[in-house]
Design a protein around this nucleic acid. Structure first.
Length: 770
DNA sequence: CAGTGAGCGAGCTTCCGCTTGACTT
């Protein structure tokens, strides 16, 4: 029987397809790219017209072997990788890696956008050749990224510090964060005054409140005060009530980027967590593919949404729509992210999986529901002296539409802002009038999700790389995700009370931040260096510009070697010039002179990151160094913040015949005594701590260690210990897990040796590195 | 986890985009 092999990218997709294709077909997954440039060296022969040197990934060995076996058995091969630039390249690489196995066999390239029997049939019936233009565009993309990354990074190692990295995507991501921080620093809040009034109304024995605001903002306290004073003893009348219909439309179904944003905003997931959970839902068959830039829904999905909405909410809620993808550089190889079967509202007993699914389910159905209809009311209130002095606003939902399942952007529950029963000509009873000082807001720091949004807008990065990019810039210490406490700010409140305008000083907490991205000193320095010498690559439009050229290559309007040459020649010259001319980039800053020694104190970036230096480098005496205090940056630390650092190490006295020394290490201050180290408590101040407290800490540590030890054999060569994750065994420095269900207290020497002989030590490479 | 930071020099680091496990403390 004729056997046809279909190769797709994802194993989950393979599993689904095989059901539709029948017995003649064998379906296998390539698991993404199977060949790439080598990891260790640049792998591009620039002299020979940018000849790439591809190697197969050693971790993909098993996958490739399987593909080879299947290909050898098949009579006909269908390369069904995704319908985009990378997918085309995967198909082409497959023909090379499987060269022997597919020799003399018909090889077809097929693409499909929906996984349905008819779509698959149609794809199989309409095979084509591999589009070499598209493959060349991918190669140009790959090679350009390699050249940029592998020439810029080593320059950073030489000029700034080892193990740094730069690239077309990550460096722009860092730049966005660094520049946003500069904007925030440079921002000066301006204040203005808002006037609000509260009225009481009686109707049918019921009492209501009406809140109104002045449509005019006041620049100064004096102006606001003048208005309030004018209102002493005045009469307020409703002069107009205007009603206007309004609409709210649902958002399109999810793409990777919008899913990440909404999951962050509504359920507080980090970008990587969202992707991990979405992957699980995808593998279980609950949602369509989660790495997509398309808002397109298949016909099948549109019909299913219609059915489910009718069933649950009635026909009146249906409005079928197909959304158009607007984002720059979208390749639309997949559908939007949606439930595979919208009849299922609950698909997992895992709470986090279900929460994410629920969000996808609601967003998808909402996108196929009618807009919400609103009635917006504006009430105009005149004072005796001033027409239209105040306005009050109300909003009522006439028809909820999609809001029935998907609340609007703020994520707040849907609630009407109801106005009390009122009519034109009503005279209002003033209860309270206030003018409070408001401030203009600085630009907001990025969250992981809002950075993804910005990158997508700029056309930088792809759905498969948003999460990894965010983690790379954090791993490199360019950026850190942290919280910031708010600060107290004074503001003025004027209140009209008892026919007087009184002045009150109030305070409020502002500027508190949670899980925001802050640039580090290193991030700032690397960005300064790159924007100074490589402004073109760091330009926000660089990606868009080269993408245009990749498209030209794909359309046959540009030759790929030529494109690379035009970029690389000036780029490489700049690399060489910078290599020659640029001095070491240390970001050195003089803070002042040390009050004790009179020597200059600097902050700068060294091999291990930011540090403080006491004394100039060229002097006879070697300068002293110290790490910055925790939570301080080079940017914001002062001389006072750092002079104490040089008081360490301090010798406090003796304990058990050894010096007790307080010192500062990689992980902050600690106590050293007889070759052992002991942590300080958070409340201990290393500069003032005394001997008795230090001895107490030493005893505490010893006590804790005793608790940790379950048993010791062979002079400490074999130890049974209590760890963070339960009991484990250490044999000559190697850690071993205990077999499940073992009670460690029952183990004797022989039993320990047996475990050590039978199990492998835990892999140490997983430790270290963050 | 633990006293880093000049000088010397070997040997290391690094990109983006497509996929999923393997794996531990």
């Amino acid at each position: 029987m004729a056997k046809k092999l279909v190769i797709v990218e994802s194993p989950a997709k393979a599993k689904t397809i095989v059901k539709y294709l029948g017995k003649d077909f064998d379906v296998k997954a390539s698991m993404g790219h199977i060949r790439d440039l080598p990891k260790k060296n640049i792998g591009v022969d620039v002299e020979k017209n940018f000849q790439p040197h591809y190697v197969t990934d050693p971790r993909k060995k098993a996958v490739i072997q399987q593909l080879k076996n299947s290909a050898a058995k098949a009579d006909e091969i269908y390369l069904a990788s995704d319908h985009d630039r990378e997918g085309e390249a995967i198909a082409w690489h497959l023909t090379h890696v499987l060269k022997k196995e597919i020799k003399d066999k018909p090889v077809h390239r097929i693409v499909f956008h929906e996984i349905t029997k008819s779509a698959l049939q149609e794809a199989v019936n309409n095979p084509r050749e591999i589009d070499m233009k598209l493959v060349e565009a991918q190669q140009a993309r790959r090679i350009l990224d390699r050249l940029v990354g592998f020439e810029l990074s080593p320059l950073l190692w030489r000029k700034i510090k080892p193990a740094l990295s730069a690239g077309r995507v990550q460096s722009v991501a860092v730049r966005l964060i660094v520049e946003r921080e500069k904007e925030i620093k440079a921002f000066e809040a301006k204040s203005w005054y808002r006037v609000q009034a509260w009225f009481t109304l009686e109707d049918d024995g019921q009492s209501y409140e009406l809140k109104a605001e002045s449509p005019v903002k006041f620049a100064t306290e004096a102006e606001a005060r003048a208005l309030l004073e004018e209102c002493i003893g005045t009469t307020f009348t409703i002069s107009n009530i205007a009603k206007k219909p309004g609409y709210k439309n649902p958002s399109p179904p999810f793409t990777t980027s919008t899913l990440q944003q909404e999951a962050s905003r509504r359920i507080g997931f980090s970008v990587s967590r969202t992707m991990r959970i979405a992957q699980k839902l995808y593998e279980a068959g609950h949602i369509t593919y989660m790495r997509t830039d398309s808002v397109h829904l298949s016909k099948l999905a549109l019909n299913m949404a219609k059915d489910v909405i009718t069933e649950r909410f009635g026909e009146n809620y249906i409005k079928t729509r197909q959304y158009a993808t607007k984002s720059k550089g979208a390749q639309e190889a997949h559908e939007a992210i949606r439930p595979t079967d919208m009849h299922n509202k609950v698909v997992s007993s895992d709470i986090t999986e279900q929460r994410l699914y629920d969000l996808i389910w609601k967003r998808t159905l909402a996108s196929q529901m009618k807009p919400a209809t609103l009635e917006r009311t504006t009430v105009v209130i005149d004072s005796t002296q001033r027409p239209a002095m105040l306005t009050a606003k109300g909003e009522v939902i006439v028809f909820d539409g999609f809001l029935k399942i998907y609340a609007d952007r703020k994520g707040a529950a849907i609630s009407d802002t109801l106005l009390p029963p009122i009519a034109v000509g009503d005279i209002l009873n003033l209860q309270k009038m206030e003018a409070d000082e408001r401030f203009t807001q600085p630009p907001a720091r990025y969250t992981e999700a809002s950075l993804v949004k910005k990158l997508e807008e700029l056309g930088i990065g792809r759905p498969s790389t948003y999460a990894p990019t965010i983690s790379t810039i954090q791993k490199r210490d360019y950026v850190e995700k942290k919280d910031k406490d708010g600060i107290q700010r004074k503001f003025t409140l004027l209140r009209l009370e008892e026919n007087h305008v009184r002045h009150h000083e109030k305070t409020e907490t502002v500027g508190a931040e949670k899980s925001k991205l802050f640039p580090t000193d290193i991030g700032g320095l690397v960005n300064d260096f790159l924007t100074k010498y490589f402004d073109d690559v760091l330009d926000y439009n660089f990606t868009a510009l080269v993408e245009k050229e990749f498209d030209d290559i794909a359309d046959g309007n540009m030759e790929w070697h030529q494109m690379l040459k035009e970029f690389y020649t000036p780029f490489h010259k700049k690399i060489e010039d910078t290599q020659q001319e640029a001095k070491k980039f240390k970001g050195e800053k003089l803070l002042g002179n040390d009050p004790v020694t009179g020597k200059p104190v600097f902050v700068k970036i060294g091999r291990f990151g930011p540090m403080v230096q006491l004394g100039a480098t060229k002097e006879d005496e070697k300068p002293r160094f110290a790490s910055l205090p925790p939570n301080k940056t080079m940017e914001d630390c002062t001389l006072e913040d750092v002079v104490d650092l040089f008081k360490l190490p301090r010798t406090l006295g003796q304990f058990e015949g050894h010096d007790v020394i307080v010192s500062s290490g990689r992980f902050g201050p600690y106590i050293k005594c007889n070759k052992s180290n002991y942590s300080l408590q958070k409340t201990d101040d290393p500069f003032t701590i005394e001997l008795d407290t230090a001895i107490k800490r030493i005893r505490e540590k010893r006590e804790a260690d005793k608790q940790k030890v379950i048993a010791v054999f062979e002079d400490g060569d074999i130890q049974l210990l209590n760890g963070l994750y339960g009991p484990y065994m250490v044999v000559k420095g190697e850690n071993y897990r205990l077999p499940k269900g073992t009670d460690p207290t029952t183990l004797d020497l022989a039993a320990c040796k047996k475990i050590a002989a039978e199990t492998k030590p835990s892999n140490k490479r997983w430790r270290k590195k963050k």
